[in-house]
Simulated scan of single mutants.
Amino acid sequence: MTINDCRIIELPKFLDARGNLSFAENFTQIPFEVKRTYWLYDVPGGVNRGGHAEINNEELIIALSGAFDIVVDDGKERKTFTLNRSYYGLYIPKGLWREIKEFSTNAVALEFGSIPYDINDYIRNYEAFKAYAKSVENVSGCNTEKQNIPTESHSEIKLHGVFDSTIVELDKHHSDRRGNLTVVENGKTLPFDVKRVYYLYDVPGGESRGAHAHRELEQLIVAVSGSFTVTLDDGNCKRSFFLNRPYQGLYVKSGMWRTLEDFSSGAVCMVLASDVYKASDYIRSYDEFVQFRKENGK
């Protein structure tokens, strides 16, 4: 792969007076199947992160908040990309050296990987990377063909209550000098595979978002920046969770009516979802939600 195989991908952006929303799904905006999701935050000014190459891992990197530069190197040429909008992402093919630098205050870098973490896949020494780059044949282009995409299916509805939803303490890799990193990996951290991510930003004070339910979708909701409150409703009970740490997530099972409110200034709400967008999975009317619970109750 060469630098010319890197490209900026424009993500959907839905403008709303209550705050904006963008998303990325497997095999569409993300040109691979996500196996690992991680985010960098609290990076001190002047500190660089991620100076390495990965032999088999592809990446898509998004500036969820703030701005930073990504320097990509194929062993012959070097190029710098600036990310400063949450609706743009940089696709980096496997086998390229990359480093993230020039973090602005409160910047958050969201990264998707195509393989689970493998320590043997990393090249962390630049001289070793140059030797590797010379030893392999560079193949231009990348395969974005949609493949192995499961067809839509509906499992038996199982109703959950608000006390089935829990706060999940996520891995936090802390460094006093270089900032923090939190990782979510399919098959390990979550009881579902991440197939879509969407995030809310620019939410004005006093606004609420996300008043709906899902028939089958499971979610992990994270305050990657700032804070907000998530209120869950199972038709009988309500329960509220205050989220204000990027290393904690709220695991929400299917069949919950949920509302997001009390957004702090600059808050960014990230949601990792168990499936791609399906309009048929949404319940957007509370009366319809109550009827759904009655019809599927014991």
Rank of each mutant, 00 (worst) to 15 (best):
A67L: 13
D118G: 10
A131D: 08
L159D: 01
I123G: 09
S135V: 06
Y132S: 06
I62P: 00
D118T: 04
S140L: 10
K35S: 09
R85G: 09
G89L: 11
G95F: 01
V108D: 00
L90I: 04
E99A: 07
N138R: 07
E137P: 12
R36Y: 06
Y117T: 02
N57K: 13
T151I: 06
N48T: 11
R49E: 08
C142I: 05
L64T: 00
A107W: 05
L110V: 06
T105L: 15
I55G: 01
Y38M: 04
Y122E: 11
T80C: 11
Y117N: 09
G113R: 00
Y126W: 12
N148C: 08
N125G: 13
I62R: 00
K134R: 15
L110P: 14
S153Y: 06
F129A: 03
W97T: 02
L159P: 00
L159S: 03
I92C: 12
I55E: 01
E156T: 06
S65M: 08
Y41Q: 02
G95H: 01
P93A: 05
L64M: 10
F112C: 09
R98W: 07
K130G: 06
T151R: 08
R85I: 07
K158M: 09
Y117I: 01
G50W: 02
Y88A: 10
Y126S: 11
K79V: 04
I115R: 08
K94R: 14
S153A: 05
L110N: 02
L60F: 07
G75P: 01
E111S: 14
D73Y: 07
H154C: 04
V71E: 13
T80F: 07
L96T: 00
I123E: 05
K158C: 11
K79Q: 14
K130Q: 10
F112I: 04
E156A: 06
G113C: 12
F81N: 08
D74P: 15
T82P: 14
E59G: 01
F129Y: 15
K76D: 15
